[in-house]
Measured scan of single mutants.
Amino acid sequence: SIVTKIISIVQERQNMDDGAPVKTRDIADAAGLSIYQVRLYLEQLHDVGVLEKVNAGKGVPGLWRLL
């Protein structure tokens, strides 16, 4: 499923980069989806406690990390 793919992308990127959070844009590119589509999935995963959003604010790139 797309959700499983997104989780594995975040996991893979974090492992490659010493646990650093992953940008929404990088996840979207790797999943082959638009940034808006991916954001909806990321928000859902956040709501159920799978991911945390590391930063927030208007015009700030979203950074995500697995919990």
Rank of each mutant, 00 (worst) to 15 (best):
G57R: 07
T4G: 10
G32C: 06
K5I: 09
G49E: 02
V50W: 05
L42A: 01
V60I: 10
L33Q: 03
T24G: 03
L63E: 14
Q14W: 04
M16V: 07
R65T: 08
H46N: 07
G57K: 08
H46D: 02
A20S: 08
A28E: 03
R13Y: 12
E12K: 10
P21H: 05
V10N: 00
A30L: 08
E52N: 02
G62S: 15
A56H: 11
N15E: 12
I27W: 02
L51W: 01
W64N: 02
L33W: 02
T4L: 13
K53H: 08
I2W: 11
Q44N: 07
L63A: 13
Q11A: 13
H46W: 12
I35G: 03
S8T: 10
P21I: 04
T4R: 14
N55S: 12
Q44A: 14
E52A: 06
L33N: 03
V50S: 02
A20P: 04
A28C: 03
D47L: 13
G19Y: 15
G57T: 07
G19S: 05
L45Q: 00
Q37M: 14
V54C: 07
L66Q: 02
N15H: 10
L51I: 08
T4Y: 13
R39V: 14
Q37E: 13
G49L: 03
V48S: 11
V10Q: 01
V10T: 01
A31K: 01
G57Q: 07
G49C: 05
V60G: 15
V54I: 09
L40T: 08
L66M: 09
A28H: 15
V3W: 15
I6S: 00
S1M: 10
L42C: 06
L63Q: 09
G19W: 05
S34A: 07
A20L: 08
D29I: 12
N55Y: 13
P61G: 15
G19L: 04
G57L: 04
I2H: 05
L67P: 12
E52C: 11
L51V: 09
G32V: 03
T4F: 12
E52I: 07
I27K: 00
Y36A: 13
V54Q: 02
E12P: 01
Q11L: 11
L63G: 15
H46T: 11
N15M: 13
K58G: 09
L45M: 06
G19F: 05
L66H: 04
E52D: 05
H46R: 14
L67E: 05
P61D: 15
A30W: 05
Q14K: 03
G19P: 04
I2K: 03
L40N: 07
A28F: 02
P61M: 12
A28S: 04
G62Q: 13
Q11D: 04
I35P: 04
Q11G: 07
A56N: 11
G32I: 03
D29K: 13
I9D: 00
V48T: 09
W64F: 01
S1A: 12
Y36V: 12
S8F: 12
G32W: 04
L42K: 00
L63T: 08
R65L: 11
Y36L: 10
M16T: 07
L40G: 08
E43N: 10
K58W: 03
E52W: 02
A30M: 08
E12V: 08
P21V: 06
Q44W: 15
E43V: 05
V50A: 04
N15W: 11
L66T: 07
D26N: 03
G62C: 15
R65G: 05
G59F: 06
Q11E: 09
K58I: 09
M16C: 10
V10S: 00
V48H: 12
A30I: 05
N55I: 07
L40S: 07
D29S: 11
G49Y: 03
Q14A: 08
G49V: 04
L67V: 14
I2T: 06
Q37K: 10
A56P: 10
I6R: 00
T4H: 13
G59W: 05
I27E: 01
I6A: 01
P61Q: 14
S8Y: 09
R65C: 09
A30G: 07
G62D: 15
I9W: 05
L51S: 01
S1L: 10
A28K: 02
I6E: 14
Q11N: 08
L51F: 04
L45G: 15
D47E: 13
T4K: 14
V38R: 00
K53V: 04
Y41Q: 02
S8Q: 13
I7A: 03
S34W: 04
V54K: 02
G59V: 04
A31E: 01
N15A: 14
I27Q: 15
V3N: 04
Q14S: 09
E43C: 09
G59T: 07
S1W: 12
V60Y: 11
G59Q: 06
A31S: 08
D26I: 06
D47Y: 12
T4N: 12
Y36R: 13
D26S: 04
V10E: 00
V60D: 14
K5G: 03
Q44Y: 15
S34G: 07
E43T: 06
V60P: 10
M16R: 12
W64H: 02
V38D: 00
W64C: 06
N55H: 10
L51N: 03
G32Y: 03
L63V: 04
R25N: 07
I2Y: 06
I9C: 05
V54F: 04
K53P: 06
Q11Y: 12
K58R: 08
V60K: 14
V22Q: 05
V48L: 14
A30T: 05
A20V: 06
D47A: 15
L67C: 14
I9Q: 00
K23L: 06
T24I: 03
E52Q: 07
Q11W: 14
V48D: 13
Q14M: 14
V3G: 04
I7Q: 02
G62K: 09
W64I: 03
